[in-house]
Amino acid sequence: MTETAAHRLLLVHAHPDDESIGQGATMAKYVAEGRGVTLVTCTAGEMGEILVPELENLAADKEDRLGEHRKGELADAMAALGVTDHRFLGGFGTYRDSGMKWHENGHAVAADDIHENAFWHADLTEAATHLVAVIREVRPQVLVTYDEFGGYGHPDHIQAHRVAMYAAQLAAAPSYRRDLGEAWDIAKIYWGAISESRIREGLRAMRAAGDTTTFEGMDPDGELPPMFRRDEDITAEVDAGAYVERKLDALRAHATQITTDGPFFALSNNVGAQAFGLEQYVLVKGTAGPTDAANGWETDLFAGIAG
Rank of each mutant, 00 (worst) to 15 (best):
R139G: 01
K188H: 14
D185K: 15
R162M: 12
A118C: 12
A133F: 02
A111R: 11
A111Y: 09
Y166H: 15
A122I: 11
L124Y: 12
R200W: 07
G99W: 05
G192W: 12
E182V: 12
A168H: 04
G192F: 14
F215W: 14
A111F: 09
E201I: 01
S197L: 06
F215M: 13
W184Y: 12
D179Y: 06
A128W: 04
A171R: 06
D211N: 12
V142Y: 04
G210R: 00
A172Q: 06
L224Q: 10
Y95T: 05
G151K: 01
A127G: 11
G217R: 03
H115P: 13
D219V: 05
A168Q: 11
R139P: 02
E104L: 09
Q141C: 01
H157S: 05
A208Q: 09
S175E: 15
S195D: 11
H161P: 04
A167F: 08
D113L: 12
R200H: 06
A128E: 02
M100S: 07
A108N: 05
T129F: 09
A127M: 10
A183E: 12
A168M: 08
A164D: 09
G210K: 00
E137N: 13
H130L: 01
P155T: 02
G181S: 07
Q159P: 00
E116Y: 14
P220G: 06
N105W: 11
P220N: 02
V163E: 04
E216I: 00
E196S: 13
H107L: 14
L131T: 03
E116R: 14
R198D: 09
P174Q: 02
Y190A: 11
H161V: 04
L170A: 10
G192Y: 14
P226L: 12
L224H: 06
T129I: 09
I158E: 11
A128K: 05
Y176W: 08
G150C: 04
V109S: 10
T125W: 04
G99S: 07
A133P: 03
E126N: 09
L224M: 14
A167T: 07
R96W: 09
A183Q: 12
W102M: 15
T145A: 05
H107E: 14
A173S: 13
G106L: 10
T145L: 01
L131P: 05
E148S: 12
P226V: 12
W102H: 09
G151F: 02
H103I: 00
E196R: 14
A208M: 00
R96L: 13
D97N: 07
M227F: 13
E223A: 15
A160Q: 05
A183R: 10
A172I: 07
Q141N: 03
A208G: 00
Y95P: 04
A127H: 10
S195E: 10
A168Y: 03
V134W: 01
A205I: 00
Y152E: 02
G99D: 06
K101A: 12
G99L: 07
L180S: 08
A168S: 15
H107C: 06
L170M: 13
I114T: 14
M206R: 01
E216A: 15
W102S: 11
H161I: 03
T212Y: 00
R204G: 03
T145D: 02
T145F: 05
A173Q: 13
